[in-house]
Amino acid sequence: MSLLFYISSIVAILATIMVITRHQPIHALLYLVVSFMAISMIFLSLGAPFSAVLEVIVYAGAIIVLFIFVVMMLNLDKETALQEKKWLQPKVWIGPSILALVLLIEMILLLLEPPSEKMLVTVVTPRQVALSLYGEYIIAVELGGFLLMTGIVGAAHIGKHTKRNLHRFLQNNH
């Protein structure tokens, strides 16, 4: 199982690197699907099968599909890719990347400070998760429900293509 973990970790990291460097949005999305699948494998190797399934269904399924819809609706094609290429100059990305790298190094240093210990991987079944979720976390679940509800209403409202309402005086000037 640890081999599965290492392989899927490497795949996830590589796929993520590809995501952030692609010019074509659709390519990046496909790499993102790969990355999510790999992370789903990591979950499986850590004994969390329920989360792994959700990762595939929600992230790789629903969210990515949303992105694809948007990319299609905006009709992002080769022109976008060319523009992305123009934007992705070394002078643009080198500074932020160094800063991010420093952050990474510091985080790893912090993580390595306490002595390392191995963990025994035991499967936490969906049943346990469900008992916990609808037991002690019930209020958080309800709040999550609210959040999704407002998300839907907000998205429906914002996404509406409204005509600009101009005052009649301004309309004449147009």
């Binding site: 932020p96 800063l99 420093v102 952050l103 510091e106 985080m107 240093l109 912090l110």
Partner: peptide, 13 residues
Amino acid sequence: VLIGILFIITLQL
């Protein structure tokens, strides 16, 4: 935000 995080983590280190 990143510089802020870096500052805090550096302090902790």
